[in-house]
Nucleic acid binder design. Structure first.
Lengths: 342, 342
DNA sequence: CTGAAAGCGCTTACAG
DNA sequence: CTGAAAGCGCTTACAG
């Protein structure tokens, strides 16, 4: 048991010590190979003695499978992205793959990150909180590397997408506030470049139409952050015709808005203004907020993503998966019948 | 510009099209190589035509550098770990490395994850919210793979560690509450197996000694979660001699405790009971909490980690880096002189 | 500066 | 079941 420093034994070393061919040591470490139990045991014994660790890079070179999935996640400020990352890691490890994380600082770095992913020979690319250029999407397609966007829909590009049903979610949210007696609505939104934001908004206006005058609905940008939601709420609630119903297109903005409403404006929720969000981040369930929200079904999204990148699925036309919306009613909205509080 | 599907061009293809050797292709893509501008341009032109993407796995096989750093992070329920992950990714990408993420579900899976990391030929291993067995630590040492633990100290093992000065932090926290007039103390702690918890606690008791009777201090386990902190606060505040000062060894537990104290027990913070935490997670700064806390200096920890895994640093004895504590005073503690509120 | 050759550590038909 | 040989895609002394 002498232990030489930095002596990384390779399969040749193991083969020599065990008195077998290197093919045998390869087989001994490949479950299901045709190798006799005796030979396998001899190899393993030698491997143990030498502290042998197989080199998966060399293996990948031949098998053309790295068991690495790239995840692009430029933005971790919203807890929902941490959930996606955690669930993705859990799910992928379940099928023997690990996540290689890329957090490009800005949009202008996306292409560089994508290029690097391909150099690492990743088996698939998952994109959250970001987008992909048409050029890179085509390059990935050519190389047979499946691309899946999470929570974002990029029409026209040859990539898969998995997201909640944002139209259904928007309608549910508007409906809840309407049935709670809301008449003066406001929306705190994120960037209009995101189809998610557009669809939620359109569905909200669609449901509001008929009940109230859509032109009266104030829409402010909360930049998808706590501070942005806080500031937007301040502006919205300051003007005349103070809203009695506030729909925030993400929970993190809703949390900021609630804090502004209660602690700076000294108004009550839901008595003075009802608030609803989207995502169902952990904070939404905390006693200080008890925020009603439209859940982002992270677990289901990950399950679909994993199915989409599986090699058994033949390369196919881009598929866009939409998961049914689910509303979680807590205390930030006025009570109505027929919908049980959680 | 015909585009064949799944035609992954390699350096041989590029060399042939450019009419050069594969060595020239290699040099054209290795910055600083001795190659004439004309040759390089010819190679790049051919590469562009073929949509050539260098295979970094093949390169790593020769250079013995994968530019991959493994991060073990079994637990993402505490936002502080998301911060560590985000900062680590940002910092490592700055030196051209990517994070390969491992989230083993339980302690019994740690060794398997570590083994896999070595198979991927990672350049370094970073461990957060977890530990490493003596056997694996030695194996990493033998293979010259540096190991750094974040926020945890594993005495006796050949691994580096980077963490806040927990003794200083504990003393600062106790001192603040003492100077705010606190006399009846309670602590919500995490697992006693963590040196971090032990050191914070010891320092707190050290500072309390002389001022009050340490035997009176209630210590409850909050399991490092929101729900655990909530429950522990309920138990602590229910008994006789209700504490006027509560030290929570992590913010996420403090947040839970604050919610229990205010929303279930209907007590005021800090008038009835002052609360202080550790970490300074985002939620601690939100208007609903305004929690005083001892910051975990994530950015500085990452900077040190990066220095520790740099190849310029010769393999050395394990170094344990402690970063000075910094207190953030907000509104969950009673005001005292000399310490400006943030 | 440029290329032919050896080799990184492994897997996989192909024979036996 | 077992081994010799070819080869995955690249880098790097070594000559020229």
């Amino acid at each position: 048991m002498t232990r030489k420093r930095n002596a990384r034994a390779n399969s040749t070393d193991v083969a020599r010590l065990a008195g077998v061919s290197i093919a045998a040591v390869s087989r001994a470490f490949a479950p299901g190979s045709s190798i006799s139990p005796e030979l396998a045991e001899r190899v393993h014994k030698a491997a143990r003695q030498l502290h042998y660790v197989p080199n998966s890079l060399a293996r990948s070179l031949i098998t053309r499978q790295s068991n690495i999935v790239a995840l692009m996640l430029p933005n971790m400020s919203n807890p929902i992205y941490s959930s996606i990352l955690a669930e993705a890691s859990r799910g992928l490890e379940g099928i023997g793959k690990q996540i290689l994380l890329f957090t490009p600082p800005g949009v202008e770095d996306f292409d560089k990150s994508l290029q690097q992913m391909l150099e690492y020979q990743v088996d698939a690319i998952v994109i959250a909180a970001a987008s992909i250029s048409s050029r890179m999407a085509t390059l990935c397609l050519d190389r047979d590397v499946p691309v899946v966007t999470m929570g974002r829909y990029l029409p026209g590009l040859p990539v898969h997408s998995v997201r909640p049903d944002d139209r259904e979610g928007g309608a549910l949210a508007a409906d809840l506030l309407l049935r709670g007696g809301g008449r003066r609505f406001a929306i705190i939104t994120g960037p209009s470049s995101l189809t998610t934001m557009i669809e939620r908004r359109e569905a909200i206006f669609g449901r509001l139409a008929g009940a109230i005058d859509g032109a009266q609905v104030k829409v402010h940008d909360g930049h998808l952050t706590y501070a942005g939601g806080y500031q937007a709420a301040l502006e919205i609630m300051a003007g005349p015709d103070r809203p009695d119903s506030l729909i925030c297109l993400t929970d993190i903005m809703a949390i900021g808005a609630m804090d502004a409403i209660r602690h700076e404006l000294k108004l009550r929720i839901p008595e003075d203004v009802a608030v609803i969000g989207f995502d169902d981040i952990a904070e939404a369930g905390h006693a200080s907020y008890r925020l009603s929200t439209i859940r982002t079904p992270v677990r289901e999204m990950i399950d679909h993503m994993i199915e989409l990148i599986s090699p058994t699925r033949a390369r196919s036309e881009p598929v866009a998966i939409k998961i049914p919306a689910r509303m979680i009613v807590r205390d930030s909205t006025r009570a109505i019948d027929n919908i049980p509080a959680v």
